[in-house]
Design a protein around this nucleic acid. Structure first.
Lengths: 240, 240
DNA sequence: ACCTGAACACCGTTCAAGT
DNA sequence: ACCTGAACACCGTTCAAGT
């Protein structure tokens, strides 16, 4: 009946220097990928890395710090995968750019979740990376005749639209219960238009087709804008 | 020096029936409005209502239940304030609809936060409300010549864009530190296009002007789509 | 039937103490 | 210098016990 007074299993103390920030970051990323960003807690990460629950604080001042570092890494991965746009017309480039953006995001769950949850918490490094990438796209537009202002706004219109689609998709996936989905299709009964739709499952714009519908028509709007700007510029020249 | 052994201040026990679900909901809403949805915790709410910390659970099975009820209320408030669209052309109606949508959301912080955080967790009641409202808009579009499918996708394109703008704004406001903001304007140095922009503060599409830019151009894209659909329908009639 | 505090299993974080 | 557990102030939630 005699029992040792000590806990059955005590983790051995790690040697100093046996933990690195890179190792912590990698473990955190693995948890985010295998489970979710929500599942990433300090105790869980510590257990996963087999370190003391508070040892992580030696390398990251807070969980927020850790998430910042994770976000910076995610943006690096994102922009490293973005396709080159040289030689494309401005509209083909925009299309290819945002199709790739969405596709890469969808394939990397931690990236998608972090980008949406912490969309504005960019490190200086990330800001520089984003600006450089965006400017490449904008140059194509300005060369085609857009004003720098219109080009920037047009870019961000598509950026916000795309992030909105990713947000909706994240929400649908995480709760499992689709907000407006086939299970709710009955609610359309008696409504003149909605009841006529063939595919109620795409009412949230998360399918590839739905996303491309928006992308195509927004870019078409910008074509008209460009035509107007070119006309106006020509008019100014003629008047001046 | 003698001190009573009891706590200095013990809340008097509330009479049974002295708590109502409506009172709980109202208190929760007041906390969300005055502070934030994040500040709404069960202990905080209980203290605010001057009830025992766990008494709320008699009326709402969980915090999630409470948030669901709060979200349903928010959507009722939203759609009660949406303007009538009768007599408007489809494009004017879309414009007025989403301008109102964004404006109402921005003026009601709990509504905005709940709609974005819990975008897909609609109650049956809310789903019915949303569907009915949407169908009104869609009818105008179908009457103008859009197919039911195109009308629905066009609507959701604008809906997702608008929610994206609100998401970005929420993030900027909540952290205080703007992601791409004047404080980061220096990063645009040397970049051909971004360095030319007059107003770096609008790089996140949260200003009224920026939102309207996107709205206007997306709707313009839909005008072209309508023209194409009308042409195609005429061609089919001629061929048939 | 309704209201309650004690208690539980979590969280992020601090800190004094080990090595 | 680096790693650690105890401890703290939170959280949502359960439950037996009051009225």
């Amino acid at each position: 009946m005699a029992r040792p007074a000590q806990p059955v299993q005590t983790r051995k103390r790690r040697a100093r220097g046996s933990i690195t920030p890179e190792e912590v970051l990698r473990g955190a990323l693995e948890i985010c990928a295998a489970e979710s960003v929500e599942a990433l807690t300090m105790p869980h990460l510590a257990q996963y890395l087999d370190v003391g629950a508070t040892s992580i604080y030696w390398y990251f001042r807070s969980k927020d710090d850790l998430l910042d570092a994770l976000t910076t890494e995610a943006f690096k991965r994102l922009y490293a995968q973005m396709p080159p746009l040289e030689g494309k017309t401005w509209d083909d480039a925009l299309r290819a750019y945002f199709l790739a953006f969405r596709s890469i995001m969808r394939a990397d769950r931690p990236m998608r979740d972090l980008a949406i949850m912490r969309g504005d918490r960019y490190s200086d490094e990330t800001t520089k990376l984003i600006f450089t990438t965006i400017d490449n796209v904008l140059q194509l537009m300005v060369n085609a005749g857009f004003s720098p202002d219109s080009a920037t706004r047009a870019y961000f219109t598509l950026s916000v639209y795309t992030r909105g689609v990713l947000l909706v998709e994240t929400q649908l996936k995480s709760t499992g219960s689709l907000g407006i989905s086939p299970s709710r299709a009955g609610f359309a009964e008696g409504l003149p238009v909605l009841s006529q739709r063939a595919e109620p499952e795409s009412w949230s714009m998360v399918s590839d087709d739905d996303y491309e519908f928006g992308l195509t028509n927004i870019i078409q709007g910008f074509r008209d804008l460009l035509a107007t700007e070119l006309r106006s510029a020509a008019g100014t020249r003629r008047a001046g």
